[in-house]
Design a protein around this nucleic acid. Structure first.
Length: 672
DNA sequence: TGTAGAATCGTTTTT
DNA sequence: CGATTCTACA
């Protein structure tokens, strides 16, 4: 108001339209809009399945950048590499390639980058080697024997189990004792040895500059705790933090996030407690509930509307999660009211279940659903074995996710081991692997040689100390290591192949196939600037190209299906690997008590709850068509053929939610 | 050191 | 049953 009491002007808030090039209000629903435009301070988003979470996150990234935040100050933490890449790509599409400068990846990959840079402060060389699970198990095995724990007076846990216990203790930030007493009581009499083993394992890794998956998180957190100036530096760099799949973070990860956001508090966490399926790995969906305690000033927003599936699928999903003991109430609704009722298929046996699926897939394809839009999901990797055989007979190309990983095959690990010792000469695990490939060198000699190498500091000196007779077979190996040191990764692999091929041919009958894998590894390495980056990348995100891949690229395959696109493939996946994905048509197989839910979880309340959430995740992957199936007669190794019991998850579903089909075997000779 | 055969287990999911 | 682990022997 002016001094004369009249209005000279009115204040009008500037419309966002003029400030931003993207029309956020148009592109998002009200709740999504709120999420995408609430940029300051802590924010927890509970996002139901298929609620356009990814879309919202992408718009939020764009919004941040449009508001003038430099992209390198934004950190996007996701559960898989794929998720991060996908989001950044889509954000770049929405805006421009500034989005590609956003820092993003899994907790583990970001930890890796930070530790390469600052790890020296806590005793970690920039050249440290990342151990995958088999590597870690090998170390445990070795230490177990040096401790003399292999005599069989009392039963002692196997290496895998030992590692599980140690890992659980670290991931949950609980003393080993508590882990053993709560989940492994039958080994409580070995507690002392286990504790000792845990200690030795840590020591071993430290001496040899090795880090397992847990170390990446533990050390990152340790770094920030012990060096607040590093924490603050990281906080200044990552000014805006977004964490996806928050329900699947563990205590360490939430601590890390809290430390990063300690000063600026611009932290957004997105998750869905109903989809928490990784507690076996230490994830604690309690983090979702603790958020408002850790950040009292935080806001809570919920995304409820589902854009993926039609209502009949959601009705079923809601019914499944309705039974859950603890949850955020969150009933999913869709605007798509109509669609085919989900089908429950009862098959006489496993093979007919498989054949039904093959035939149905062909039908769906005739209806115009591309193969990439079809997926078969299951609880455990081996549940699809029979189906894989059947798909091959029907000439249906597929891609299997989960299961055996490319980098975990022996020949790939062998080749990588040569590169590893080049990068980190202290990598005893790598050394051990390549030394044992030599004739006449076993565990004992191998360990002795490694010891000498570690003391000597460099190869030629070590060689001299070795003594005449042992020296001979080592010479070619050492000259290989020395020769490839200055080369780029693809050339290094080429040289390794020259050296390794005779060993490969000797060791495996199927060596041509394995050689092809190694060539593939070489191709992969071309994408990386340095050995460090290549090795870290391959250990942290194993390539998706898993085997067995069956399809048009395989020359043995006969006629293609009509109108097939070159790389069109349907998907086989564990439910865990299917998280976050969606398909037009989804089959969930092996819905039997003891299979899904798994036999292991049936007696344990919490684990059964997790299986239920897993089922919920599976159901909510389907956009249009959903088939649930189980075989009646299953073959059990011990008892022969037995009558099976349908999954208890089906019990609580009223009949009107499902259409029920029963497969009747055809008369006459089978088609195969 | 390397292998063959016996004993003994225990079954997921993944960065 | 199949993978892993241990033992016995060349």
């Amino acid at each position: 108001m002016g001094p004369d009491g009249l209005n000279y002007y009115t204040i009008k808030k500037r419309e966002p339209v003029s400030q931003f090039s993207i029309d956020y209000q148009e592109a998002l629903n009200a709740a999504q809009y709120e999420v995408a435009t609430s940029l300051q301070g802590p924010l927890l988003v509970v996002a139901g399945a298929g609620s356009g979470k990814t879309r919202t996150l992408i718009y939020r990234l764009a919004r941040l950048i449009e508001s003038g935040i430099p992209p390198e100050n934004i950190l996007l933490l996701t559960f898989t590499r794929k998720a991060a890449q996908e989001m950044l790509k889509r954000a770049a599409l929405l805006m421009d390639d500034r989005c590609e400068k956003i820092a993003g990846g899994t907790f583990h990959s970001v930890a890796n980058q930070i530790l390469r840079k600052h790890g020296g402060l806590i005793g970690l060389d920039p050249s440290f080697t990342i151990l995958d699970r088999p590597d870690s198990e090998e170390v445990i095995q070795l230490l177990r024997h040096t401790l003399g724990l292999s005599e069989k007076k009392r039963r002692f846990p196997k290496k895998g189990t030992i590692l599980e216990m140690i890992s659980a203790s670290r991931n949950r930030n609980l003393p080993l004792e508590e882990i053993v007493f709560s989940g492994y009581e039958h080994f409580s009499h070995e507690l002392e040895s286990l504790a000792r083993l845990k200690e030795l394992y840590a020591q071993y890794k430290e001496q040899k500059q090795l880090a397992d998956y847990d170390d990446l998180l533990v050390k990152w957190l340790e770094l920030m705790k012990r060096f607040p100036e590093v924490r603050d530096q990281l906080g200044r760099l990552y000014k805006y933090i977004m964490v996806d799949e928050y329900q699947d973070t563990n205590v360490l990860q939430s601590e890390i996030v809290k430390a990063l956001a300690f000063t600026h508090r611009h932290l957004m966490a997105v998750g869905d407690d109903a989809q928490s399926i990784y507690s076996f790995r230490g994830a604690s969906f309690q983090n979702m509930f603790d958020f408002s305690r850790d950040f009292p000033e935080s806001r809570l927003l919920t995304l409820r509307e589902n854009y993926r599936s039609h209502q009949k699928i959601l009705d079923l999903a809601n019914q499944v999660i309705e039974q859950a003991a603890l949850k955020h109430e969150k009933t999913l609704t869709s605007r798509k009211k109509e669609g085919p009722l989900p089908v429950l298929v009862q098959a006489p046996d496993e093979n007919l279940q498989s054949r039904f699926i093959c035939q149905k897939i062909l039908e769906l394809r005739e209806e115009g659903i591309p193969l990439e839009e079809i997926a078969v999901l299951f609880r455990s990797s081996y549940h699809s074995f029979d189906l894989e055989v059947e798909l091959a007979k029907y000439n249906i190309p597929f891609q299997k996710m989960g299961g055996m990983k490319f980098v975990e095959t022996a020949h790939i690990k062998d080749v990588l081991a040569y590169l590893r010792v080049v990068q980190n000469p202290k990598d005893a695990v790598g050394w051990s692997r390549i030394l044992l490939l030599l004739d006449g060198i076993g565990v004992k000699t191998g360990q002795r040689i490694i010891q000498i190498l570690l003391n000597a500091g460099n190869l030629s000196e070590g060689l001299e100390q070795m003594g005449q007779e042992k020296e001979k077979p080592l010479r070619p190996l050492f000259s290989l290591i020395e020769a490839i040191e200055p080369l780029a990764p693809p050339d290094q692999i080429a040289r390794v192949i020259d050296y390794y091929f005779p060993i490969l041919r000797e060791k495996y009958d199927d060596y041509p196939k394995r050689l092809k894998d190694i060539e593939h590894l070489k191709t992969l390495s071309e994408r990386h600037r340095s050995l460090d980056l290549f090795l870290a990348d391959i250990m942290l995100h194993p390539p998706d190209e898993n085997f067995p891949v069956f399809g048009p690229t395989d020359p043995q395959v006969g006629a293609k299906m009509t109108g097939e696109k070159e790389d069109e493939r349907m998907v086989l996946s564990t439910i865990h690997s299917a998280k976050g994905l969606e398909w037009q048509a989804v089959f969930i197989i092996w819905l039997l008590d003891g299979k899904f839910p798994s036999i292991h979880s049936i007696e344990k309340g919490e684990e059964l709850e997790e299986e239920r959430r897993l089922f919920y995740v599976a159901v909510t992957r389907a956009k249009e068509k959903l088939f649930l199936s189980y075989p009646i007669n299953i073959y059990d190794h011990r008892t022969g053929t037995v009558l099976s019991k349908p999954s208890r998850f089906l019990d609580s579903i009223p009949p009107e939610f499902l259409e029920e089909w029963t497969l009747v075997p055809e008369e006459g000779p089978a088609s195969f």
